[in-house]
């Protein structure tokens, strides 16, 4: 088990170097005029040259990258060109915001899609058709429209939740929940449809298998048959879809955080990309790659727990 874990983490670290190297090269070749954008339209060429030198942007590409790598080895991701804030501090303060929204969205996705998938597979008939129709609509329905509609109804008209901003869980759990629930619903809509379809399909396959007929013949109750046996066996493919949903939702948080003005990882990544804020962008990349590696690892471990055959593989 341990060698497997080390191997996966080692691959993750190699991935960090590869992806950051590519990000660095792409950003460099994009040639975003960072100093000019920081100083504004009234800046003179001399002021821009001074700021470029101060930020180290006048150095050759390889030197900038090795400087950054040197910092990385010491746990220093550098400072944002635009905010002056330490990138590690920025990301560690922003990641909980995004994870709050993403985790709540994943819980909603998991509960809703499992319920819909089970109901569709077990009942079939009109309920199946209805739920599949709802799933299809939610799959194609743009989340941004839903976000605007939810903000209008619950934040502006009813004033039940804030339209923008974030409250820390530790500061006020109820305010925290109200600040993340709308973005989480927006993020979960597409995922619910995809995962419900996966759960439904896998469950139908399982329910048609011989062991189910055998268990049914032995008098095992339908509820036990469905939830204890078929669902567990159907969970493997659904779990893979679930992990993909996590990555997808994590990526979509980028836009949702902008709509709801959440100070999260996504809005940080969005601004860093637009501004060409290289230290911030590379920090985002490192954190993002590590997060994806860890989530995939956890899903693989969960797969092994659910299905012992997967452990051997």
């Amino acid at each position: 088990m341990l060698p497997y874990l080390f191997r996966r983490l080692g691959a993750g670290i190699v991935l960090v170097f590869l992806v950051t190297g590519i990000t660095f090269a792409l950003t460099y070749t994009a040639d975003i005029p960072v100093a000019r954008n920081i100083l504004g339209p009234q800046a003179t060429d001399e002021q821009i040259a001074i700021l470029n030198a101060r930020l180290g942007l006048d150095k050759p590409l390889w030197e900038q990258y090795t400087d950054w790598l040197g910092g990385l080895f010491h746990g220093d991701l550098g400072k944002s060109y635009f905010s002056g804030q330490d990138v590690t501090d920025a990301l560690t303060s922003r990641l909980p915001v995004t994870l709050s929204v993403v985790v709540v969205a994943m819980i909603i996705t998991l509960l809703a899609s499992t319920a819909l998938g089970i109901a569709s597979a077990a009942r079939r008939g009109w309920l199946d058709n209805l739920l599949q129709g709802i799933s299809t609509i939610s799959f194609v329905f743009p989340g941004i429209i839903l976000g605007i509609a939810l903000v209008y109804v619950f934040a502006i008209e009813l004033r039940w939740v804030p339209a923008t901003g974030y409250t820390k869980l530790a500061d006020d759990p109820r305010a925290w929940f109200s600040s993340v629930i709308l973005p989480a619903i927006v993020l979960s809509i597409g995922g619910i449809a995809a995962l419900a379809a996966q759960v439904r399909g896998s469950l139908i396959d399982e329910l048609d298998r011989e062991y189910v007929r055998t268990l049914r013949a032995r008098g095992v109750s339908e509820r036990s048959l469905l939830l204890k046996h078929a669902l567990r066996n159907a969970a493997g493919p659904a779990l893979t879809t679930f992990s993909l949903q996590f990555i997808s939702i994590f990526g979509a948080a980028l836009f949702v955080e902008k709509i709801f003005a959440l100070p999260g990882y996504g809005s940080y990544a969005f601004n860093a990309t637009l501004q060409g804020d290289l230290p911030a962008l590379l920090g985002v990349t490192v954190f993002g790659v590590l997060l994806v590696v860890i989530v995939n690892l956890l899903v693989d471990l969960a797969q092994g727990w659910l299905n012992p055959k997967a452990r051997l593989a």
């Binding site: 502006i156 004033r159 804030p162 339209a163 923008t164 003005a261 601004n271």
Partner: peptide
């Protein structure tokens, strides 16, 4: 001061009293 870069979000914050 709340940092809100999106103009629609500013509008929503204004309309909702934030």
């Amino acid at each position: 001061f709340q940092v809100i870069s999106d103009t629609t979000a500013v509008q929503n914050a204004m309309l909702s009293g934030q």
